[in-house]
Structure formats: structure tokens, C-alpha cells
């Protein structure tokens, strides 16, 4: 590593903005924080006196909890502000709300929002650091980083691996962050899903596109199934969940086509029997619970690094 190197981002809005070196630093930091989580006293005083706001415009207990636990383990003060639906409905815009939050002098805002670009918008209008906890169909960088961490842990490396991502690539911020992150770290990423769910130009993010799931997972070291959002059914994207499961679900037959020691991942929550066979989700190749554990460590690392930890 370059001895001059320092993680120098004020915000983490997407993996597109991070260099391979930045990503390595986050992963190394997260690995050292993971040890804290295994202690009996799971708390360090690193961020005592710092204020972190979890600002969630979309319901997401998992991600919010993960960030909250991460902040608390470093002794930061955390506040949760949720708004089901958009508060724009009430006539208050994201910027209005952000200006009100600014009165609390937060050091960091964790934002989850249904609109792509909202994290950038917030970052442009507030002094605090912003971590994007998922903006629309754009990026979900902490999820991408925890997936990278989980793969590195399981496989000992990322470069040279073959990653297959199966499902709704078009509407998945997780897929976007993973394609960017894994290809930046030297892995090969192949995506597959119904043609209606493969967006134009996904190759430019670093992914190859396969026509069939079997072809996509051939020799893969990692199989990642993405959640099919049932509310997307109103668009004519695929005929039924039943047919989706039959042609694009990750089944034992799919796993058999992958590398013999391939691991199975899913960002959760899982529609069991749709995108992923229930037995595989709970089986020995699944690292889905590891993903959750690593989520806390990665989020501790992100908060620590952007708040000037050294």
C-alpha cells in the first residue's frame, strides 16, 4: 500500500467513488472491528460524543439496526428518524428535513431513501458526513462492502474469483454496488436474469451478461441471488413468480453447475422458493448469516473512517 495513502472521503455515497485501495482499507478496518463484536464487552469509546442520525425514508429494519448497532458499539449517540412513504407528500422536501436535522449538529447522517441520487443531494446541502444506506436503484455501498468482506473471508481473496449475480439487476442497488465493487477488486462478475430485468449498459459497470442461469454460474465461486420485489409485478417484467422461480431461481441444479466449493449469498430478506431454494438458503454453502455479522463490522469501519478516525 502507498505509504502516503489515507482514506480521505467525507461521504460514502457509492462504491463508484471509492478506489480499490479505499475498499481494501475499509475491509481491513472492518476485519479488525469484527473482533470487538466477539468480545464480552462489545463497546469501544472511539466515537464518544459524536452524533449519528439514522434517517430512513424506507422501511428497512435490518439495515437500520445494523447501522445502529455499529454506531453504538463505538459509543456514538444515535437517533433514528423514519418516515414511511415520502415526507414530500406532507410538503416537506428532503432538503427541508435535512436543514432541520442540521440544527441537531449531527456528525454523520445515514440515509436510506427511495430516490436515486438522494444521498448526493443531501451531501450537497449539509455539513455532516453522509453514508448512503441505499438510494433508489442507484447504490447500496455498505451492502457491497459487506459482501466483499464475506467473500474475502470465505475464499481468502477476491481477485480472480468468478461471481454470478442472478435476478433483478435493473432495480437492484445491491447488484450495482456489487458489480462495481467486485470488478474493482479484480473479480469477474456475470449477471443473469430475465431480459426485462437486465438494464442497458450494465457491461459499463463491469458485468458480463449471460443468457441462462446455468451458463452464468458455470465455474462460479460465488452465487448471489437477488430479491425479487413482488411490488414490481405491476410492470410487465415477467409473467409470474412461479415461472420466475422455474427459469431464474437458484436451485440445486444451478449450484451443481458452479465450482464445487461455491458459496451462496443473498442480501435478504429472502423470498424462499422464488429466487432461492429454501434448502440452499439454510444449507452448508450459504454464508447469508455471515453477511449479517459482517454488516455490523463494515458499517463500524465506514463510520470510523469517514469521521476521521486514525
Amino acid at each position: 500500500m502507498d505509504p502516503e495513502y489515507r482514506f480521505s472521503h467525507k461521504h460514502v455515497l457509492g462504491l463508484a467513488d471509492l478506489s480499490a485501495e479505499d475498499i481494501r482499507t475499509v475491509l481491513q478496518t472492518a476485519e479488525s472491528f469484527k473482533e470487538i463484536s466477539s468480545r464480552s464487552i462489545k463497546k469501544v469509546p472511539t466515537l464518544r460524543g459524536k452524533t449519528i442520525i439514522n434517517f430512513f425514508f424506507e422501511p428497512s429494519t435490518r439495515t437500520r439496526l445494523s447501522f445502529e448497532v455499529a454506531a453504538k458499539r463505538m459509543s456514538a449517540d444515535t437517533f433514528n428518524i423514519s418516515s414511511s412513504g415520502s415526507s414530500t407528500v406532507k410538503g416537506e422536501t428532503l432538503i427541508d428535513t435535512a436543514r432541520n436535522l442540521a440544527a441537531m449538529n449531527p456528525d454523520c447522517i445515514i440515509l436510506r431513501h427511495p430516490r436515486s441520487g438522494s444521498a448526493r443531494l443531501l451531501a450537497d446541502h449539509i455539513n455532516a458526513s453522509v453514508i448512503n444506506a441505499g438510494d433508489g436503484t442507484h447504490e447500496h455501498p455498505s451492502q457491497g462492502l459487506l459482501d466483499l468482506m464475506t467473500v474475502r473471508e470465505a475464499k481468502g481473496r477476491i481477485a480472480g474469483l468468478k461471481i454470478a449475480i442472478i435476478g433483478d439487476i435493473a432495480h437492484s442497488r445491491v447488484a450495482h454496488s456489487n458489480i462495481i465493487g467486485f470488478s474493482k477488486m479484480g473479480a469477474t462478475v456475470t449477471v443473469c436474469g430475465p431480459a426485462t430485468l437486465i438494464p442497458p449498459g450494465i457491461e459499463e459497470l463491469g458485468a458480463q451478461v449471460s443468457r441462462t442461469v446455468i451458463e452464468a454460474v458455470e465455474g462460479a465461486d460465488v452465487i448471489m441471488a437477488l430479491r425479487i420485489q413482488k411490488e414490481r409485478q405491476q410492470d410487465p417484467l415477467f409473467p409470474s413468480l412461479r415461472e420466475y422461480a422455474k427459469f431464474f431461481g437458484v436451485s440445486q441444479k444451478v449450484v451443481d453447475a458452479a465450482s464445487p466449493d461455491a458459496i451462496i449469498m443473498h442480501p435478504g430478506p429472502i423470498n424462499r422458493g422464488v429466487e432461492l431454494d429454501p434448502q440452499l438458503a439454510d444449507g452448508s454453502r450459504s454464508v447469508i448469516l455471515e453477511q449479517v455479522t459482517n454488516g455490523v463490522a463494515v458499517r463500524m469501519a465506514l463510520i470510523y473512517l469517514i469521521m476521521g478516525g486514525d
Binding site: 463508484a16 436515486s116 441520487g117 438510494d135 433508489g136 436503484t137 442507484h138 447504490e139 435493473a170 442497488r173 450495482h176 438494464p199 442497458p200 449498459g201 450494465i202 457491461e203 459499463e204 459497470l205
Partner: peptide, 10 residues
């Protein structure tokens, strides 16, 4: 519609 829209998630 195109690669840039995909990258921006729009």
C-alpha cells in the same frame, strides 16, 4: 435510457 441511466439508477 442507456448506460448512464443504469449507472445513476434512474
Amino acid at each position: 435510457d442507456g448506460p448512464l441511466a443504469t449507472r445513476l439508477g434512474l
